[in-house]
Design a protein around this nucleic acid. Structure first.
Lengths: 201, 201
DNA sequence: GTCTATATTTTGATAGAC
DNA sequence: GTCTATCAAAATATAGAC
């Protein structure tokens, strides 16, 4: 049984992904659901609240996915490899939602914006911790854990921009390519630039 | 002497960057220019045309910048290093415009959208050529030039998301970090995954 | 080149019947 | 829980005076 509350989210996700949040109207969402626009407001108090709901559940699921993947892993390179695979897979499998979560922050109220950013910071913190551990152990050679975490995350998001389900490459194949790229990119280079310390702040 | 035509673009760039294209109104642009909204239409026929103009000049300048950087370089690793630095520097120095060029494609008419994508494809083609050359010479070890080019480009765009002029890191420092990351990521890994060929299509 | 005034549409959201 | 009807505000764009 599919509730109208869930249908509205599904239709909104599709429209926000294709047209963007501001370019999508409540009427369009209602049309996609087969109801009148006034009926939307029985389920959600505002258009912004629909967007916030998408952000919240996507981020919660993403965080839970990473936590589950990392549990039990202690080797630092193994943790980073697992983190990349987890992140990439989630972004490819829930392409539309993650695209929205990454690009439609500006539609949120200041309060909701703060809540979303706080959750995102927690997620990024987990990645930065792995990078710092790796640098401390000499496995990675970065100058700045924060910047490297942004680089790693943006890189792993990039598949979601062009990925087409059922296309030439499978989700796992793409995850492996990124895993290889990130691990190599983080590792110490023979011709490393001067000062390969890892302050990380 | 600064023309009103140029002022409108400057104000629009700032607003599109901060609020997004659809969330920005003609009235706001006019207010930022100190004129009435009707006066905007003397200089540009529509809001979409302002957006298109930003896309066009940004892409043209970006392409010219890369061409200038690569001219005279023949060594494949040197070409890739130069391409990364060129791309990163341009994206940091013209942060607002490149952000718009990367995220506001959906506001364009179908015709303008096609024109912009065609130009972007040309730029990406140059990068893919370097990757294919590097793979053919055994300098890089990628499985797919197209995907690796997307990875490289998205990665090099990422600085523009958080960069603040006058902040802790200089433009050149950031360019060096990305250069190192990309070169390492593209190079053959000792534990490389199976089948390190480079089909590239 | 910039103005005032306005036409036309559409928006997000509410009231109240059923 | 969905409907019809409607409000008030704001949007893009145009006409014509100066």
């Amino acid at each position: 049984m599919v509730t109208m509350k869930a249908t509205i989210i599904a239709v909104a996700v599709d429209l926000f992904y294709r047209k963007g949040y501001f370019a999508t109207s409540i009427s369009e969402i209602a049309r996609g659901c087969g109801i009148q626009k006034a009926s939307i407001y029985y389920h959600y108090p505002s258009k912004e609240n629909i967007l916030y709901h998408i952000h919240e559940t996507t981020l919660d699921d993403l965080t839970a996915h990473l936590r589950r993947t990392l549990s039990g892993l202690s080797d630092v390179e193994g943790r980073m490899r697992a983190a990349v695979r987890s992140h990439v897979r989630f972004h490819l499998m829930r392409q539309k939602e993650t695209f929205i979560a990454n690009s439609e922050l500006r539609g949120l109220t200041p309060e909701h914006y703060a809540a979303v950013v706080a959750k995102r910071d927690t997620y990024e913190g987990t990645i930065q911790e792995i990078i710092r551990d790796g640098c401390a152990q000499g496995v990675f050679a970065g100058q700045d854990a924060k910047i490297l975490s942004y680089a790693m995350l943006t890189l792993c998001n990039s598949g979601a921009v062009w990925f087409k389900p059922g296309g030439r490459l499978s989700v796992d194949a793409i995850a492996r390519i990124y895993e290889q790229f990130v691990i190599q990119g983080l590792k110490a280079g023979g011709d490393g630039s001067p000062g390969s310390t890892c302050e990380g702040r």
